[in-house]
Design a protein around this nucleic acid. Sequence first.
DNA 1: AACGCCGATCGAATCGATTCGACAGGCGAA
DNA 2: TTCGCCTGTCGAATCGATTCGATCGGCGTT
Lengths: 357, 357
Amino acid sequence: MATPANPSGDGARATLAQVAARAGVSPSTASLAFSGAGPVADETRERVLAAARELDYGGPDPRARSLRTGRSGIIAVVMEDRIRVAFRDPMVVTLLDGIADEIGTAGYSLLLLTDSLERAEGGLRDAPMDAALLLGCSTDLDPAVKVLSQRQVPLIGVEAEPRLGMHLVDIDNREGMRAGAQHLHDLGHRRVGTITLPMDREHTRGPLDPEWVERSVAYTGLERLAGVRDVFPDAPAVVAAGSLIEEGLVAARALLDAHPDLTAIIGQSDLLALGAIQAIEERGMRVPDDVSVLGFDGARIDGLTSHRLTTVVQPGVEKGRAAARLALAALAGEPVESVVFRTELRRGDTTAAPRTA
Amino acid sequence: MATPANPSGDGARATLAQVAARAGVSPSTASLAFSGAGPVADETRERVLAAARELDYGGPDPRARSLRTGRSGIIAVVMEDRIRVAFRDPMVVTLLDGIADEIGTAGYSLLLLTDSLERAEGGLRDAPMDAALLLGCSTDLDPAVKVLSQRQVPLIGVEAEPRLGMHLVDIDNREGMRAGAQHLHDLGHRRVGTITLPMDREHTRGPLDPEWVERSVAYTGLERLAGVRDVFPDAPAVVAAGSLIEEGLVAARALLDAHPDLTAIIGQSDLLALGAIQAIEERGMRVPDDVSVLGFDGARIDGLTSHRLTTVVQPGVEKGRAAARLALAALAGEPVESVVFRTELRRGDTTAAPRTA
DNA sequence: AACGCCGATCGAATCGATTCGACAGGCGAA
DNA sequence: TTCGCCTGTCGAATCGATTCGATCGGCGTT
């Protein structure tokens, strides 16, 4: 055989103890040689590493290490939707990128989880993790929060409703949206409609049920709605089933059918706003000449060239980074303080003064 | 305190042994009660679960379990690019979705890794995983493969060069691309250029270096190039720095500058093809009237409405699923057979007969 | 010259579960 | 009646590392 020498047959991986034995040192010393903690003579370390090489030993087993140290080196990200849906939202991807970057340089890896599957036991309940980030405008995190906090996993919520025992990273949703709406108001708009993110766990489409506003089930969506209504108290709202272009299209059609006199549409996300643009243009109207469109998020959307969307920009990567840092701080036992980022209105070419018809 | 009773103070999580003690059974029995393996009297199980509830015990510690069983319940996906870049490619997202779906229902979770960071030790080397899927048209997987195979982790490559000890999921890249090129040839095209995926680890842009073709560093890109050249042996090629619309744009500009008489451009991915469309249109030419464009992948691209791209469709979700199934099979000790999927040409409205100028 | 300290190494306990083999009854079959 | 067999339970070994405390020279101080 051309494979490296392995005394105990090939299938079995060598253990640190075997390496130590071969190097003529104790397991403790071998461990120190690998981890770098504690003083080890250069000559000894060399001997250990040589023995490891001979046995084709690839370093300490992460499983054993994590049992002993109590750390798995894994930080989980819990999302509400399945991957194909969630990743179509550039905001999610941007967040994730910030998270991955930050935890990566700290030596952690990223585990992707979905909160839905209570049946398949493989996820929240059983996966090893040192901390968890709950992502997205989740409409109901309770089950996930319950399981994880019982497991004593530090929890960081991104855009989540303030909740016991969970640290938060958020933005000034209401104020940001208010500023956007005010921009439209300043331009002269008075009849403005809005498309909201999902408002219930089932992601029901349709005109906004006033009851939802009372029951407060979807934190982010309600905050942004409140921002719109701070300026336009009577703005009609249609709920989309997700932050997707096609959802925005469907919702905007409904909005325009019910309120043909709207001069502007506000999407609670850029994708919803883009859908609204499509709906407007498919009726032969033009943006912003006939109808203005305002978005929210400001994440880069690849391949969008026809318009520069006017939108409320939030610092996505920074938000992800901050969430990751909170998790790392919690793990380091440092005090954790929730963070709120500020948004900023970015003027593109999708808003203008309404036609003075 | 309103928190559940916890004899040993609050910070510490209860252990299975403590639960067993409280229920008046042995740890072995308590374990069986939780795992469901082995026979346990209903009454006993109830007693154990009750004790667990009283101690706020959330089930066995994944770390300990995974040391003992040798399984972590984690399957890693290794990508070449950082998240923000990789996830901009709908093909990657589609693959990931298939993977997540399949391993999720099997009770596994998905760990996201990047192969680049050899420095930050937190990834390939230290993360717990039962198997790894190597993703993407990776230009050089060697380091990753080395580390992981030393760790005795079963390896599945998606679109990777055949390689020792690694099972593969692939498509008929060359044949698929040949069919696409043939379609153009049938339409009457003779002067066709192509934009390729990155060809070296540094992702260098520019006209294709013939030397690369010899050295065979980028499996997928070379296969697809070969497919084009099966039909158009002299087709000029420009290498892009990634599968991105803007990369396609840049490359297509270069291609059109150098060869103004091209009647068709073939992108090795849909995103590259979309970039090519932009490049063509920015010169005041039209697709397909002046220049035809052909893509590869056929993954859904959100918000693309202006054209229905003619493209070589590969079954992305199925590919992801298949890769996941191979991994699961390897873990189950079943024989693993590599899989090759077939592609299919989908005619959109971006190809037509060349102008008979 | 004696003391203390530091560098290097080792022994042994420990992390928290799973699992194999053993054992005690109870029940059905021969 | 007796022999297996099945069910339910328990003891003890084990997974593979980390880490605390102890040991032991050697070296610099005063």
